[in-house]
Design a protein around this nucleic acid. Structure first.
Lengths: 341, 341
DNA sequence: TATCATCATCAAAACGTTTTGATGAGCTTT
DNA sequence: AAAGCTCATCAAAACGTTTTGATGATGATA
């Protein structure tokens, strides 16, 4: 077969020659932006079909200034670092945005690396930045270029940036902490992740305020999202021994929750009887662990839906609210925080 | 702030003026394709940096004929139809390819709709078509355009199309069937999906051959991948009652396996004691069902890795094997097919 | 019959790059 | 000092569209 490669694509000029008209007539006939007689239009259509004409997207975009494509930059590094354990979050993030874009029949580009000059830049009409860092440089660059940007979660350094789809953490985190309190917890340890984004910052703020209000000690530590499962138990071990061990742990990265449960078991601590355990993301690990672990679901699908809709509305020139769209994470109460009644 | 929008991007002409050189000198200085004196090169670099110059990707691609972007067309409709239940497969497919592309710092475009003329076509140097249909029209169109194509799994009507990454089903499906036989199954029912792709065709062929060779009855039925969970039990119910009910079921779509288990339980059939049950994809549903269900893992991640590597090798002009790359699916034996010893 | 409006089509410019053949300045060689 | 080279830079063409002002033909009006 001659499907080999390097077959030169059909241009509008060849269509014009075949139909016996000028280039501009072809353009008008196909786009319908100027009246063309029915006969000519039919001849042009036929010629285009016979030749298999497909307009060169680069030429078109160069001329019109729009590509019809939306970019996607996914911030959390750990997700890309891509241990298989962390893949679920990444897949869900990417998959839900891709699904939404397909529903709207609009092309989506995963932008590989905005800053590397060796990487060709990408023709996009707008860009979705998911989970930006504090003072995110990529975000700043895109805004500096005047490109329409929609963020999923806010840049914590610029919380009032317009066109953000945000999660409303405080009420849900507080509900979780109150739940732990109800179950008897008086010494709650918070293990945050190390990426500087809204998901790590906001719940921490709420936690600190809650401890203060309740008159409880605030105890926090960091647990990098990039850790391998091997590393976690030994890091957590010392926190669980000794007389002043916490009676509840809230860990950000839910993939680590089962590992903490193991470490606890190794110390002879039962969950939930001796230690309550909850996570700030949901995941298969959390759902299927024994016992199942209470977690906050970030509702990535809903975030994706809102972000894509907002972006497409902006690009189509529709009126859009500049203020942030707030969504509520969902609390999934499971056995790890429910003591037998 | 003036990050509003519509800010006209910086062109190479402005950089040239600022640096006091010609346009072509700027191009050469930045690309290094012709020798430029160190002093001039520095001046150009500086001017570009100060202005925040970013070459227009459309103009560049128009001129060079390459965009540096790879397209992705994901065939299975049910995945896109996107009931949340089926999202796992879609996310894993998309996520693993996106991950690989990011690793290689190359942009990936989700191609929305190849045939809809209302949808702008997309500037890609090559395209990965995942799980093509039999006689796939999109695949044919891309090949017709002379675009480099790599398929994940083959078009079952054109199994010998070059540059495919394929799963080697027969040995693994046979191993599964033998396993069922060892566990006592003598009447195995196969419930295939309705999408016409390799994943539905190949295992079915192996099953029919195996039944023949073993002298067992071949019993197959269809269960559309697009069914909602509600529909499945009542469709399956009649197959499970009566004197000639099967003693083992292999169902393609693993999300349906737990539903079949429920239907069986409703008939008083215990798994694995009265009925063996296995699936031809793996999923969370299968892993966490009670009992956990034996399944064939299609190793999407490995497929993605091979496909992306093959595509990038072709685009970079490297020597690549035309013949298919074969990978083996992995059999995950679980309780649903293991009778107590 | 001469003039004017209408309609369909055309020619040319523009989008922002990369690429290539041409040009001029500065050295070396005779 | 004239001729030949090398090196750095430039001007112009080309990529394939869309868009717009111009043009010619046709039919209606005075």
């Amino acid at each position: 077969m001659d499907t080999a490669s390097g077959k030169r694509p059909v241009t509008i000029r060849e269509v014009a020659e075949r139909a016996g008209v000028s280039i501009s007539t072809v353009s008008h006939a196909l786009s319908g932006r100027r009246p063309i007689s029915a006969a000519t239009k039919a001849r042009v259509r036929e010629a285009a079909a016979e030749l298999g004409y497909d307009p060169n997207p680069n030429a078109r975009s160069l001329r019109t200034g729009r590509s019809g494509l939306v970019g996607l930059i996914l911030r959390p590094r750990y997700a890309v670092a891509g241990t298989p354990d962390r893949a679920e979050t990444f897949n869900r993030l990417v998959g839900s945005i891709a699904t939404e874009m397909l529903r709207h029949k609009t092309g989506l580009i995963h932008v590989p690396d905005l800053h590397d000059p060796a990487v060709a830049s990408v023709p996009m009409d707008g860009c979705i930045v998911a989970h930006p860092y504090g003072g995110d440089t990529a975000l700043a660059e895109l805004l500096g270029r005047g490109l329409p940007v929609v963020t999923v979660e806010e840049d914590p350094e610029q919380p009032d940036l317009p066109w953000a789809v945000r999660l409303d953490y405080p009420p849900v985190v507080e509900a979780l902490l109150e739940h732990l309190y109800d179950q008897g917890a008086r010494d709650v340890l918070l293990l945050s992740g190390t990426e500087d984004n809204a998901w790590n910052r906001r719940p921490r703020e709420t936690y600190l305020a809650w401890c203060e209000r309740r008159g409880l000690p605030a105890r926090t530590a960091l647990l990098s999202e990039g850790l391998t499962p091997r590393d976690v138990p030994e890091l957590v071990q010392p926190l669980l021994s000794g007389p002043d061990r916490p009676d509840a742990i809230v860990v950000a990265t839910s993939d680590f929750a089962p590992l903490i449960a193991e470490a606890a078991a190794a110390q002879g601590l039962r969950i939930p009887d001796d230690l309550l355990l909850a996570a700030l993301t949901d995941s298969e690990h959390a759902r299927t662990s024994a016992p199942p672990i209470t977690a906050m679901d970030l509702t990535h699908e809903a975030l994706a839906e809102q972000a894509v809709e907002l972006m497409l509305a902006r690009l189509s020139g529709a009126e859009t609210p500049e203020g942030p769209v707030f969504l509520a994470p969902e609390l999934r109460l499971r056995e790890s925080t429910q003591r037998g009644t």
